[in-house]
């Protein structure tokens, strides 16, 4: 099974999703991320989803939940690079966006997580 690579940059964990996410890959991704936070004590988590042209409600929920779980573990999550058509689709379906922090791209997300950008 394809695993999504997770990189570490100082206090921040970075992951870019490019594969077509099926449910088990998404769940494994969540497990891996939380495991890495536990091991490294990272304070920030940056997930780049610019490679995804479909995010259905299941995957969206896994991503949103991951952010909430990470927060419980003391890490702030920023979701970056969501494509316009993916955002429009999720919102049209009635998916709530509360509690999800976002940024335009990885640069900006990293700036938020490293405190270079006040938000």
């Amino acid at each position: 099974m394809t695993a999504i690579p997770i990189l570490r940059l100082g206090n921040v964990l970075l992951a870019a999703v490019h594969v077509d996410l099926d449910d088990s890959v998404a769940e494994r991704f969540q497990e891996d991320l939380l495991g890495r936070i536990e091991k490294t004590g990272a304070h920030g988590l940056l997930i780049d989803i610019s490679g995804l042209d479909v995010v259905d409600t299941y995957v969206a929920r896994v991503l949103a939940d991951t952010g909430k779980m990470a927060r419980l573990m003391g890490a702030r999550t920023v979701l970056v690079g969501m494509r316009p058509e993916v955002a429009a689709t999720l919102v049209r379906m009635g998916f709530g966006v509360e509690g999800i922090e976002t940024a335009l791209d990885a640069d900006e997300g990293l700036a938020i997580l490293t405190g270079a950008s006040a938000r």
Binding site: G81, V91, V97, I100, T102
Partner: peptide, 12 residues
């Protein structure tokens, strides 16, 4: 509200 939410999702 939906437009605001979608704009939020792409990071603005």
């Amino acid at each position: 509200l939906k437009t605001t939410a979608a704009v939020r999702l792409v990071g603005a």
